[in-house]
Design a protein around this nucleic acid. Structure first.
Lengths: 131, 131
DNA sequence: TGCACGCTAACGGTGCGTCAGAGTTA
DNA sequence: CTAACTCTGACGCACCGTTAGCGTGC
């Protein structure tokens, strides 16, 4: 259970569907560091951290590098904390450009899915004795 | 242009949409070796080879290892050349099992696509000043 | 106090990208 | 003859999986 709105890595892994190793790796490369540690050194994640992990998990199938993800998370953070309005608007533009790339890749992924489904059917047909 | 129904690696790469390096790598691991070489050592691919490359390319988004692909190509080959009927039917069963795994993964991929599309829309919304 | 849970190295592996330097082909 | 194409190493890299040995927390 979460105490104080902070989760240990195992609980986070289950919630989000990432392995412990992956979550730790995301800290190693400064992508999603836990916002805290317990006295004994256990990683502690907030709901916002978990949300960041979810963003990464959902963007990964689009083939973005972890470095690309950095930008996205940074831009989202900028927009959210919105101190300087100029910085916020720059972040929004960055986000918009990224979203365009994401849309393209969604298209690519749709194509790949269609191809994969087609070849799966072919395999079934051949397996069934088809020509 | 292809002479004699055999293509050089560059032409194959363009037709199939794989890099030269990838195609060479598939030979290194004995996944799709070219069925011939020119006098000077250039790889020469037949239409059947190109077809194998396409199979691999289309299955890749499902996350299968190149080793898994070996099985598929081998099974397809078995079914096609069909010498021994017992071997052919074993190959068909192998293909069927593989197709089941492929279907599962198509489902996973559909989920991932849906997630990716959702988060892309979220990014657009946030970029547009949404909350 | 036990037992699940977590921690930090550190090595391993897949699937290519990317030169470099030299040979081949049309 | 000369572009354009291809060849063989060989190193590098991203993204984790997987022990191994040891500390934490409820």
């Amino acid at each position: 259970m979460a105490i104080d709105g902070r989760y240990q890595i195992g609980e986070v892994a289950e919630q989000v569907g990432l392995s412990l190793r992956t979550i730790r790796h995301y800290e190693e490369v400064d992508l999603v560091p836990p916002s805290g540690r317990s006295a004994g050194g256990f990683r502690l994640y907030t709901d916002a951290d978990v949300e960041r992990l979810r963003v990464v998990k959902h963007l990964k199938p689009l083939g973005f590098s972890l470095e690309d993800m950095q930008e996205v998370l940074a831009a989202l953070e900028e927009v959210r904390t919105a101190g300087d309005p100029a910085a916020a608007s720059a972040a929004r533009r960055a986000l918009e450009r990224f979203a365009e790339r994401a849309e393209e890749r969604c298209g690519d992924l749709r194509t790949k899915l269609a191809n994969a489904e087609a070849i799966t059917r072919t395999m079934q047909r051949v397996a069934a004795g088809g020509r």
